[in-house]
């Protein structure tokens, strides 16, 4: 319990830091952000009004205070384009992104862990070599190449799946795969490395000499002890997954946070851009926190010893 509270406490300044950096983003816009958002020709009155709405006429510190107060009330401004509150647009898009990332994570774990175990158990065999090489290949293929490649082969040539947009499960397959393959490659490699360490331990030899079959031996005894590095990597990879969706959603016309972010960048709708970055980063921070907390679940040493 103390471990959990301490971890949550340590996360608070990081959350504040994420909010601060996101707040500062708009001040990086060269020149006058209002000019860029409305265009040079806009009337002075419109400009003054927008400047006031965004609080850009206030001193920086006042703006920062107002930003934090608004944030505490979950008010992160309105879209310049649709006039909708930013939070509403974010919540509207979140389920689509969540669906895609969960599906991708599921597929990645589904093939990453078993193949990683198999490679470790048969170290230096043909299986091991092909896992290692395909793992490196998978890590090296960018989503914006894999996506079109999958579309070309499975949607255009073979006509198995629809090309784009959200819909039933058949719409989910290609975008989820294009996110899952690189992720699964990383999981596969780390599972192999972690399993290799564990299966040399004495207790594995003991279990084996007691006559335990390979199934329970590797899955129940070895995998449990090899899990920590895997969980760490999975947690860290969620960040890559969340940003990967920006590209994958663009390719597959998926109505999630990624397409919202990119569209808002193109429309110079800065409040929405800030909102997207803030939300995705906060999700990432929470995932990392949960990853850390899960150590306590996996490894009693963390819970008891500190």
């Amino acid at each position: 319990m103390r471990f959990i509270l301490r971890r949550i406490f340590v996360t608070l300044p990081v959350v504040l830091g994420v909010c601060t950096l996101t707040f500062l983003l708009i001040h990086l816009v060269p020149g006058d952000p209002v000019d860029i958002m409305l265009g040079e020709q806009a009337s002075a009155q419109d400009k003054a009004q927008l400047r006031q709405e965004l609080g850009l006429d206030q001193p920086l510190l006042t703006q920062y205070k107002a930003f934090l107060f608004d944030l505490a009330r979950l008010d992160i401004g309105r879209s310049l384009h649709t006039r909708q509150p930013v939070l509403d647009s974010l919540l509207e898009r979140l389920p689509a992104t969540a669906e895609l990332t969960f599906a991708a994570m599921f597929i990645a774990l589904l093939f990453g862990i078993p193949l990683g175990i198999l490679a470790a158990v048969r170290q230096y065999s043909a299986v091991d070599h092909s896992v290692m090489v395909s793992g490196l290949l998978g890590m090296s293929i960018p989503g914006f190449f894999l996506g079109p490649l999958l579309i070309y082969v499975f949607a255009i040539q073979l006509d198995f799946f629809p090309v784009s947009e959200r819909g039933g499960i058949e719409h989910l397959v290609l975008p989820a795969l294009s996110l899952a393959l690189p992720l699964g490659a990383v999981i596969m490699r780390i599972t192999r490395a972690s399993m290799l360490e564990v299966i040399r331990e004495d207790y594995i030899n003991v279990a084996r000499s007691k006559g335990l079959g390979p199934g329970p031996l590797y899955f129940r005894h070895a995998l449990r002890n090899a899990l920590m590095p895997i969980v760490t990597i999975v947690g860290l990879q969620v960040g890559a997954l969340l940003t990967g969706t920006v590209i994958t959603e663009t390719i597959f016309d998926w109505p999630g946070l990624g397409t919202l972010l990119l569209g808002s960048i193109q429309r110079r709708d800065y409040p929405v851009v800030q909102g997207c970055i803030l939300l995705i980063s906060l999700i990432y921070v929470v995932v990392n926190l949960v990853t850390d907390l899960s150590y306590a679940l996996i490894n009693p040493k963390v819970r008891l010893g500190e």
Binding site: V18, L21, L25, V29, G239, T243, V273, S281, N288
Partner: peptide
């Protein structure tokens, strides 16, 4: 810690979006 709290590519994306 603060910089690593952001997914790397996302922060770079945000910065370029603002800087042009």
């Amino acid at each position: 810690d603060m910089i690593s709290a952001f997914p790397n590519f996302l922060l770079a994306l945000g910065l370029v979006a603002m800087l042009g």
